[in-house]
């Protein structure tokens, strides 16, 4: 079973605050899924380091032409707080 500390470490990395109840809940649930996933160790696989999922005829490139986006207001309207047309984070005690 995944320890409480392990769950907290993952939650911190994922930036998720968990309640006490949730910590116990995810200890069980993560363990349950991770146990199941162990079956992959039975599969013999090639050691390729990169597996492509994109069709060969995809076109990942575009020409270098600047086209300004027309709906800036639509972007800023969704912001929780705005000051001087910048996204505003409240004053905070420390920087990370």
């Amino acid at each position: 079973m995944l320890s409480r500390e392990e769950v907290l470490k993952i939650a911190k990395l994922a930036r998720l605050t968990l309640t006490e109840d949730e910590i116990g809940f995810y200890q069980k649930q993560l363990t349950r899924v991770l146990d199941h996933i162990q079956d992959l160790n039975q599969v013999l696989t090639n050691k390729e380091a990169f597996v492509q999922h994109v069709p060969v005829d995809a076109e990942p490139f575009r020409e270098d032409v600047a086209v300004p986006f027309a709906n800036h207001d639509g972007l800023m309207k969704n912001a929780p707080a705005v000051e001087n047309n910048c996204f505003l984070l409240p004053a905070i005690m420390e920087q990370n």
Partner: peptide, 23 residues
């Protein structure tokens, strides 16, 4: 703190199954 802003916004705003998969 900024760390708390991320963690709490995500912790409060995201549901149970999604948090499981994120973790």
């Amino acid at each position: 703190t900024s760390e708390e802003l991320y963690s709490k916004s995500r912790g409060e705003g995201i549901g149970r199954e999604v948090k499981l998969r994120i973790m």
